[in-house]
């Protein structure tokens, strides 16, 4: 999809629109490319260094494309005391990537998130915004297997 329409919605030369416009571009493109950040810099009349500075400051922005399945591991306190670190380590080991990375085949991205507020089913992860709670190492392995199967079928 083209990002042209996004720019049309915002006033030019207004630095305060920087974050919303980056958010919208990321929603459309999946990530923020150098090219788009350059464009945004020109559009807002901000130095591109500042755009880059903002894009790297906030957790939400990513400068690389995301995988097909985005796994978010809740690292909230409730999940932590119920073993979410093990959940994370298991996922990292199973997928062979660290939190914040995407598998080479672009199938899975792994992220951590500070409390998604589903403390009642801690420890919890979300896969493409669907929640999976009360996780154990075994459950994760099963879950991943089912998603791997899914991607193969696609």
């Amino acid at each position: 999809m083209d990002t042209k329409q996004i720019y049309e919605k915002y006033p030019a030369n207004d630095p305060s629109i920087l974050i919303p416009i980056l958010q919208e571009i990321q929603e459309t493109e999946g990530y923020l490319s150098e090219e788009e950040m350059q464009k945004v810099a020109g559009f807002t009349r901000l130095p591109v260094s500042r755009v880059y500075g903002v894009a790297t400051f906030y957790n939400q922005f990513r400068l690389q494309p995301l995988g097909e399945y985005v796994i978010r591991v809740c690292r909230g306190t409730a999940c932590h005391v119920k073993g979410s670190l093990d959940v994370l380590t298991t996922l990292e080991n199973e997928l062979g990537i660290k939190a914040g990375e995407t598998t080479k085949d672009l199938k899975f991205s792994l992220e951590t998130v500070a409390c998604i507020g589903a403390c009642s089913i801690a420890p919890v992860i979300s896969i493409n915004d669907e929640y999976h709670g009360h996780l154990t190492v075994k459950k994760i392995q099963k879950l991943l297997a089912s998603f791997r199967k899914k991607t193969k079928e696609d």
């Binding site: 130095p47 591109v48 260094s49 500042r50 880059y52 500075g53 790297t56 400051f57």
Partner: peptide, 8 residues
């Protein structure tokens, strides 16, 4: 604006 602080 050649340089800026990046990351966090």
């Amino acid at each position: 604006g050649a340089i800026d602080i990046v990351e966090r």
